[in-house]
Structures are given as structure tokens and as C-alpha cells.
Amino acid sequence: MNIIYFLIGCSVLLALIFLAAFFWAQRSGQNDDLYTPSMRILLDDDDAEADKK
């Protein structure tokens, strides 16, 4: 029965770590620009292909 309490404690600790990481990412501006990444694939970048040759 003690192992169940230990595992519950570990899972709560891990959930708090992920929650803190989520709030840190929000504060540091990780999700500020939601439009550009989805449109980047549609934009042609001919200069990058010319540099590879």
C-alpha cells in the first residue's frame, strides 16, 4: 500500500513540474506568433535553394 502513496506523490510532483514548465513557456513568449509557423510552408524560399547548389 505504501508504494501507491509513493507513486501518487511522484505523479503529483511530475504534474506540478509540467505545469510550471507550461507557465514558464507562456511567460517567455513561446506562443506569441501562432500564424507565421502555419504559413511558413506555403512561402517559397528560392534563395535558400540557390545557396545549396
Results as ranks from 00 to 15, higher is better:
Met1Gln: 01
Ile3Cys: 07
Ile3Leu: 14
Ile4Ser: 06
Tyr5Asn: 04
Tyr5Cys: 05
Leu7Cys: 10
Leu7Gln: 05
Ile8Gln: 01
Gly9Thr: 02
Gly9Trp: 01
Cys10Ala: 11
Cys10Ser: 07
Ser11Trp: 08
Ser11Thr: 07
Ser11His: 05
Ser11Met: 14
Ser11Cys: 14
Val12Pro: 00
Val12Cys: 02
Leu14Met: 11
Leu14Val: 13
Leu14Cys: 13
Leu14Asn: 07
Leu14Tyr: 07
Ala15Ile: 08
Ala15Phe: 13
Leu16Val: 09
Ile17Asn: 03
Ile17Thr: 08
Ile17Met: 12
Phe18Gln: 05
Phe18Met: 15
Ala20Thr: 03
Ala21Val: 04
Ala21Asp: 02
Ala21Ser: 13
Ala21Met: 04
Ala21Trp: 00
Phe22Thr: 06
Phe22Lys: 02
Phe22Ala: 10
Phe23Ile: 09
Phe23His: 04
Phe23Thr: 04
Phe23Asn: 05
Phe23Gly: 05
Phe23Tyr: 08
Phe23Asp: 01
Trp24Thr: 08
Ala25Ser: 07
Gln26Met: 15
Gln26Ser: 11
Gln26Glu: 11
Arg27Trp: 12
Arg27Phe: 14
Arg27Thr: 13
Ser28Leu: 10
Ser28Thr: 12
Gly29Ile: 01
Gly29Gln: 02
Gln30Asn: 14
Asp32Asn: 14
Asp32Met: 10
Asp32Val: 09
Asp33Leu: 04
Asp33Ser: 08
Asp33Val: 01
Asp33Met: 04
Leu34Ala: 06
Leu34Thr: 06
Tyr35Ser: 13
Thr36Ser: 09
Thr36Leu: 05
Thr36Ile: 05
Pro37Val: 04
Ser38Gly: 15
Ser38Val: 11
Met39Asn: 11
Met39Ser: 12
Ile41Ser: 11
Leu42Glu: 02
Leu42Tyr: 08
Leu43Arg: 12
Asp44Tyr: 03
Asp44Gly: 13
Asp44His: 06
Asp44Trp: 07
Asp44Leu: 11
Asp45Tyr: 05
Asp46Glu: 13
Asp46Leu: 12
Asp46Asn: 08
Asp47His: 00
Asp47Gln: 00
Asp47Met: 00
Asp47Glu: 03
Asp47Val: 08
Asp47Gly: 02
Asp47Ala: 04
Ala48Met: 01
Ala48Gly: 00
Ala48Lys: 02
Glu49Tyr: 14
Glu49Thr: 15
Ala50Ser: 11
Asp51Ser: 08
Asp51Thr: 03
Lys52Arg: 11
Lys52Tyr: 10
Lys52Leu: 14
Lys53Gly: 11
Lys53Gln: 09
Lys53Cys: 06
